[in-house]
Design a protein around this nucleic acid. Structure first.
Lengths: 141, 141
DNA sequence: GCTTGACTTCGAGCGCGCTCGAACCCCTAG
DNA sequence: CTAGGGGTTCGAGCGCGCTCGAAGTCAAGC
């Protein structure tokens, strides 16, 4: 597989794939006689994993470190495992934080909903309330 | 409150606070006779909310847009609400994606754990396993 | 034989979100 | 009167993760 096809199948651009090779995220690819990169399909698995690390916010230099360890063979497994465990802990913490923020967003949005109701009530006159007033969360901004 | 104290209480630097004012994230602060910014404590609530938006990955230019709408008064409430709803949807999707990634990480880490056991079994000989294999939770989060 | 298009290397540039330093001002305490 | 510490504006710089363009090579199809 050449770089164009890998780009299509991985969702990265050819530019990015070359960049990743340059910085050591992807192993140096074999070249054919025209010095075009010739990829094995198995690289897709690795790229997919890198994508997971990226999505979860691992900095590139850390991914590079992981890639280097992987390259160094089985002796580095313990260290790789520790890296992933540390990373997992960070991601879990981040998810918890996001869920916290989601609650805040919910409250805020509920506050706007309450305002809508009051405006609607105003528009349609004192007797025109469509929703009971109690729907609004009192502490909402 | 002057900028130094606000910095201390908000966790941002004075440099960042000035930057935020410059780009419109924070309202233009009143200056005292020495042209030092003089903040009201209520600004802390707004900064805390901005922090939530930032944590959840809202781009600054969008926060600036939100801040501008807020500044324009009640007429913009519907639009602000929509912004927050769209943002909430993105955050929820992102959380789901992260949870997906966590499963992958779990699997990967479990794989390394399996290797550890095999290595330990090898180190200590066929009869020397320290932990029953069943201790390992295969699908653990 | 020529065009086309996918590739190569190389180095510069970009968008984001700050971060920092220079040069200056003002207030207070010793 | 002076030193120090906090503030001011302004514009440049930085780290990250790409992104892009220039200039050249090569193989296939007309």
């Amino acid at each position: 597989m050449r770089i164009g096809e890998l780009a299509a199948r991985s969702g990265l651009t050819a530019h990015t794939l070359r960049y990743y090779e340059r910085i050591g995220l992807l192993p140096y690819a074999d070249r054919n006689r025209s010095s075009h990169r010739d990829y094995d399909a198995s690289i897709l698995t690795w790229i997919a994993f890198l994508d997971r690390l990226k999505t979860t916010g691992m900095p590139i230099r850390e991914m590079v470190r992981y890639a280097a360890l992987r390259n160094d063979g089985p002796a580095t497994q313990a260290e790789r495992r520790e890296m992933l465990e540390r990373h997992r802990a960070r991601v879990r913490a981040h998810v918890a934080e996001l869920q916290d923020c989601l609650l805040v967003l919910d409250t805020k949005i509920a506050g706007y909903a309450g305002t809508d109701e009051r405006m609607q009530a105003h528009d349609t006159g004192p007797s025109g309330r469509r929703q009971p007033a109690g729907t609004r969360t009192p502490g909402a901004r």
